[in-house]
């Protein structure tokens, strides 16, 4: 699903590379934790998958596409295959829960009846039925993150990227979010999650890829957060 081959990324002339010769394969349906200290290259990895950045060297393949060679007008097509969730939720404050999720379908030009069917379905999946009309500020942090996940998943993307999705949440709420991501993963969606949260990584026992100074230093199936230390 996602293949990195000898990928390096240097942000500026003379800077230390953010990613250095990373080779990694993530298959369809995988659940992968990207761990490592700040500045180890986790975010750069995600940005390269989304083509927010271009690799300085090497090839990045996502959902069968060579991202480096993708024409700019085809980038939106790539991004429709990928849902993204952030630490700060990034919801639209002046739209309701329903509208926030529907927004993702509206901008893709989905017909009204499709939106009317898919949005409540997805809100049910993330456990927010009955809160459609609330505004983001009326929700708890965990609920806001569920809205964000619903928005990322409503178009049924093949890949879901999550950048520290539990970073702003207390441990109990985080567990709920992880259960939700696990459920989404079991529908066949590939999930790549960058995180600092060692408890969660240790509990989930999924594949763990550890980055340090832009290099892959560990890649374990059913790994834990700390074994590289």
């Amino acid at each position: 699903m996602i293949t990195f081959e000898q990928v390096s990324k240097v942000y500026g002339e003379g800077h230390r590379p953010a990613l250095a010769e990373v080779t990694l394969q993530i298959d369809r349906g995988d659940f992968v934790f990207l761990v490592g200290p700040s500045g180890s290259g986790k975010s750069t990895f995600l940005r390269l998958v989304l083509k927010e950045e271009r690799a300085s060297r090497g090839t990045v393949q996502v959902a069968g596409r060579d991202v480096g060679r993708l024409r700019s007008w085809k980038v939106p097509g790539l991004r429709r295959q990928i849902g993204v969730v952030f630490q700060d939720f990034r919801l639209l404050a002046d739209k309701s829960v329903y509208e926030n999720v529907a927004f993702a379908l509206q901008v893709l030009g989905k017909p009204r009846h499709v939106i009317a069917q898919t949005v409540p379905e997805t809100l049910g999946l993330v456990g927010l039925s009955g809160k459609e009309r609330r505004r983001p500020h009326e929700l708890s942090g965990g609920e806001q993150q569920r809205v964000a996940i619903a928005r990322a998943f409503v178009n049924r993307p093949a890949i879901l990227l999550a950048d520290e999705p539990t970073g702003n949440l207390d441990p109990e709420t985080s567990v709920g979010i992880m259960k939700l991501l696990d459920r989404i993963n079991r529908t066949g969606t590939t999930i790549v999650m960058a995180t600092h949260d060692d408890d969660i990584v240790d509990q989930m026992r999924k594949r763990v890829v550890e980055l340090r100074d832009g290099r892959v230093v560990r890649d374990e199936d059913r790994g834990v957060y700390g074994s590289g230390r």
Binding site: W73, P76, R80, Q81, R90, L92, F103, V107, L108, R151
Partner: peptide, 14 residues
């Protein structure tokens, strides 16, 4: 920019 960032990420055309 928040709206446009989200639009970009969900794959809205330019």
């Amino acid at each position: 920019r928040r709206e446009t960032t989200i639009m970009r990420l969900v794959g809205a055309s330019r």
